[in-house]
């Protein structure tokens, strides 16, 4: 599978893996607060695949996964404390709350444990945060749109779950992109909650009141629903940015086979868990120059490579990518400025 990692992929081969310390005896735990949806399942699968190989290759001594029984903060705080007692050298965490786990995270740091958070990151300064650059993703959507619709025109925006930092960041990126491309104008905005059904309903409701739309910028998980809404209304099909979901890429392929339809797709890869693992490994390796806030690339597909990826995604699932140690080194390098 050819993957386009928008940031730093080219640097992957150039980055040198300088091993300063031996991590083969180190133990890394993964504290996870929820496993109940397809994204989280893909996240756990990716983590399991990568860490199993790392343990087999004697890169680390152990990499165990711990999932709490409920989504509650105190349960995960207790879990982190128990992992401290277990004598783990590092804890990779997808946290239930950005702030309320800080007490337990601080205790872990004080016990000399490296903490790397991702997806659900923590604000405690001693921890590392692997953050996907959602703002750049939003901006890139408009950049790509400019390629497919060089004449510009009206855009419809589909927002994600209200009140989340992810929705905020992507939206800000889209606004920045539109500011840089004055030929585009956002004429409508609906809330799709990253869900095809919700997006379809929302788009269908606003469609009659909209002028002609050339493109849709969205947040992933909503592109297929938007396409359905346009088809049902009998309106011409706009350029819809996709979000790596299996149903979205499948629809894209159908349209491409029919008349060469062109678009672009991007989202956060659940496999970012494996990237967090490698960051933890690098810190244990003795690297002192790793920034505590790591901005990492999102996973994007273009007209040329999405069809190769499609068969590998589970029905109803989302495209993922297992990160390698080299990917992590490249990502770290890209963040040291």
């Amino acid at each position: 599978m050819k993957k386009l990692l928008v940031l730093g992929a080219l640097a992957a081969m150039l980055a040198s893996g300088t091993a300063l310390a031996d991590t083969s005896g180190k133990k890394i735990a993964f504290s996870n607060n929820y496993a109940g949806n397809s994204w989280r399942q893909a996240m756990l699968d990716s983590y399991g695949i990568v860490t199993k190989k790392a343990v087999d290759d004697k890169i680390v001594g152990a990499a165990d996964i711990f999932t709490t029984a409920d989504k509650e903060v105190p349960t995960q705080a207790a879990q982190v404390q128990n992992l401290i007692l277990q004598g783990y050298d590092a804890i990779v965490i997808n946290a239930a709350s950005p702030d309320a786990l800080n007490g337990a995270i601080k205790q872990a740091c004080d016990a000399g444990i490296t903490v790397v958070s991702f997806d659900g990151t923590v604000t405690e300064p001693c921890a590392y945060r692997v953050v996907v650059d959602f703002k750049d993703m939003g901006k890139q959507e408009v950049e790509q749109m400019a390629k497919f619709q060089p004449k510009g025109g009206n855009l419809l925006e589909i927002r994600g779950l209200a009140g989340t930092s992810i929705d905020d960041a992507i939206h800000a990126g889209i606004l920045e992109g539109v500011a840089a491309h004055p030929e585009f104008k956002i004429v409508g905005s609906v809330t799709g909650d990253w869900d095809q059904t919700t997006a379809q309903k929302a788009v269908a409701t606003i469609l009659p009141s909209l002028p002609d739309v050339v493109g849709i910028v969205d947040q992933g998980g909503d592109g297929y629903g938007a396409a359905q809404a346009f088809a049902a209304a009998g309106k011409p099909r706009p350029t819809i940015i996709m979000g790596n979901r299996q149903d979205e890429l499948k629809w894209w392929k159908e349209q491409k086979d029919k008349d060469g339809y062109k678009t672009w797709s991007a989202s956060i890869a659940p496999g970012v868990s494996s990237l967090a693992f490698w960051v933890a490994q690098q810190v244990l390796d003795g690297r002192k120059d790793i920034p505590h806030d790591l901005l990492v690339p999102y996973l994007a597909f273009t007209q040329d490579d999405f069809e190769a990826a499609l068969p590998k995604i589970k029905e109803g699932g989302v495209a993922t990518h297992e990160y390698t140690q080299e990917d992590a080194l490249a990502a770290i390098k890209a963040n040291i400025k």
Partner: peptide, 17 residues
């Protein structure tokens, strides 16, 4: 006591209790 330990709060923090 709970907030004294976690240092920071969350509206759902006690639901399991």
């Amino acid at each position: 006591a709970l907030i004294g330990i976690t240092t920071s709060a969350d509206a759902n923090i006690g639901n399991g209790y």
